[in-house]
Design a protein around this nucleic acid. Sequence first.
DNA 1: CCCTTTTCACCTAGGTGGTAAGAT
DNA 2: ATCTTACCACCTAGGTGAAAAGGG
Lengths: 180, 180
Amino acid sequence: RRMFPTFQVKIFGMDPMADYMLLMDFVPVDDKRYRQHAFPSRRYAFHSSSWLVAGKADPATPGRVHYHPDSPAKGAQWMKQIVSFDKLKLTNNLLDDNGHIILNSMHRYQPRFHVVYVDPRKDSEKYAEENFKTFVFEETRFTAVTAYQNHRITQLKIASNPFAKGFRDCDPEDWPRNHR
Amino acid sequence: RRMFPTFQVKIFGMDPMADYMLLMDFVPVDDKRYRQHAFPSRRYAFHSSSWLVAGKADPATPGRVHYHPDSPAKGAQWMKQIVSFDKLKLTNNLLDDNGHIILNSMHRYQPRFHVVYVDPRKDSEKYAEENFKTFVFEETRFTAVTAYQNHRITQLKIASNPFAKGFRDCDPEDWPRNHR
DNA sequence: CCCTTTTCACCTAGGTGGTAAGAT
DNA sequence: ATCTTACCACCTAGGTGAAAAGGG
């Protein structure tokens, strides 16, 4: 499935005439597996609001990469509007052959954003290091799940994702302006 | 609206590592305007199967061009599968600002397909002539209309365009194999 | 009359969380 | 008990010709 919200980025400082590839990947935040409850219990109507460590992480998944489908493109093209990675999809299927990003459920991940300058020089491989920049936004960390573990996350998604409009109790269009 | 069927082309002989732009435009086939009937008549239940010349063409429309949205891309990318111009849209609105191709209704057009080699040399403008190839398939000529003038064309479209499935009398899936 | 414009029901295509059944 | 899978109704987004209304 897609990520929601989508990872979006505004870019400055490229050479407008040069070609760049934009891509994303996901690295584990830690070496842990998470779970909802330490002990069996009926006290929680719908899971808890915090995660507990359940032990060591499962074996790492193949480290796939997602190229922005407009890659390669000129710096001017990338900079003239917000770049949105809305075609990026996540899966927990280790045998996936749709090229989706493979993650372990119940593990924490840090999305990373990479910019690659397409070096026109013949021996460009030599400069791979300097033609490559990585950007990490820690506020985009998340726990991968197969089903939501927290009502407030579910409600936030239903309220903000247009495709979940069918599950809304009231229409946000009817809200007073100062509540939007 | 879109063209249907979509203009599609299979490409051979490019340099796999070089960049190319692919584009289409439309040129008038002649300097004529067409119409259905020479004289008022009630003999035709739904128009005629042939076109009659109605006089000289209307003033030529702005000669817009449609770049395939994957442009620019490497020869290897273009050659590895059929290239489909399914994002190309036609309009009769001279003031259109969606970048659609502007055509005069009731006029005949010849679609043209152009391949532009993106020359990496600094003085590439000098070689514009040799880096540009045009391909014309006369069987793709058509008369632009705002509404179909012939029942058999309407039925052919309904039978073959998936988006018109709602107007089909019977489901082609139910046809015997040798009729498909 | 002939053609164009506008609106509409009906599709394709695909992104949501809910839900029930399945797996461990 | 906890988590995963498969399927579903319900959306968004947009491509069809029909039909009615409008213009010359």
